[in-house]
């Protein structure tokens, strides 16, 4: 079992004729074919005005609605440039796509406000933006993560960051802890899916036995997550917070990673998580070990 991505997932790419869109569509198709030769997960793409063309055997459509009609897609991976990306997300949701994974970095915050107001009226789920995507190892990936670093297993992995997710997946894999599903939720101030949404899904997923969450400075999503874990999560949870040494008032790469007015520090987040029984790695080198310890603690 897994969350978000399963054997019924059929994906199109919005922005497929762009360099990154095509490259990652190819990589995702390659991954799906490698792990499940019987299926075709990646089935086409959308670039308005280029409908009717074919790029590397991917049919291109003018709109998401047309792509759904012709291919039966239920998920999308978005590489549309920032100024038009909010609009692309709204199009996908309005056309009936259930899972929207937005990879694009640099969408204006107020565009995301508009998007999130719109999504609240639909039953579409947005992951991202500014994220590596979602992978259910052995089933399919929708995103830019390298497939081979993720092995199938019992850990649900949630992270705000891209390469740090890879690092965590790598460490977990080296300890024999594969992942049920791994999700990068993105480092922007306004995102579609947060820690709590995924904690709930993983808690309810029979294929997930333990949860690893990787946060960073800025905002209070990790503190909210800690409160949620206390009330609702019975599975073992391990965590890590990036940015213990970050100075206040400076944006650390991600638009959301900024300590403002003394709030959103790594220390307060680590403390909140530890207080509800989460095993928090002090060093990024110990993320895998923290998960191992959390599992051992619950087991004993």
């Amino acid at each position: 079992m897994s969350i978000l991505v399963n054997t019924d997932t059929r994906v199109i790419c919005q922005g497929i004729t762009g360099k990154a869109g095509l490259f990652h569509s190819q990589k995702c198709r390659e991954y799906a074919r490698e792990v499940r030769s019987d299926s075709d997960v990646f089935i086409g793409g959308v670039t308005p005005g280029k409908g009717g063309q074919t790029v590397d055997e991917f049919p291109v459509f003018n709109s998401v609605a047309e792509a759904i009609e012709k291919t039966g897609a239920n998920a999308t991976m978005i590489f549309v440039p920032p100024p038009f990306c909010g609009d692309a997300i709204i199009e996908a949701a309005d056309s009936g796509i259930k899972l929207i994974v937005a990879i694009t970095e640099g969408i204006p915050t107020l565009d995301m406000v508009k998007v999130s107001n719109f999504l609240a009226k639909t039953n579409a789920r947005l992951v991202g933006p500014n994220c590596p995507g979602v992978i259910t190892p052995g089933v399919a990936k929708i995103g830019i993560m390298p497939g081979y670093i993720h092995s199938a297993g019992p850990v649900g992995l949630i992270s705000k960051s891209g390469t740090l997710t890879y690092e965590a997946a790598w460490q977990l894999g080296n300890l024999g802890l594969g992942q049920s599903t791994a999700i990068g939720i993105g480092g922007d101030p306004i995102i579609g899916t947060d820690f709590i949404d995924l904690l709930e899904m993983f808690e309810n997923d029979p294929g997930t036995e333990a949860i690893m969450m990787i946060g960073e400075i800025g905002g209070d999503a990790e503190i909210q997550a800690a409160n949620y874990i206390k009330e609702h999560v019975t599975k073992p949870v391990a965590g890590f917070i990036a940015g213990q040494t970050a100075p206040p008032g400076k944006r650390m790469g991600h638009a959301g990673a900024i300590i403002s007015g003394g709030a959103g520090t790594a220390a307060e987040k680590m403390e909140a998580l530890e207080a509800v029984g989460v095993v928090v790695a002090q060093s990024p080198a110990d993320m895998g070990k923290a998960m191992q310890e959390a599992i051992a603690r619950k087991g004993s």
């Binding site: 891209g162 997710t165 690092e167 990036a242 002090q282």
Partner: peptide
């Protein structure tokens, strides 16, 4: 010098650690 914002922040933390 690191690739990715999260890993870059973590690398700073690691040095401090």
């Amino acid at each position: 010098l690191v690739n990715g914002a999260g890993l870059a922040m973590s690398t700073m933390d690691l040095i401090k650690h």
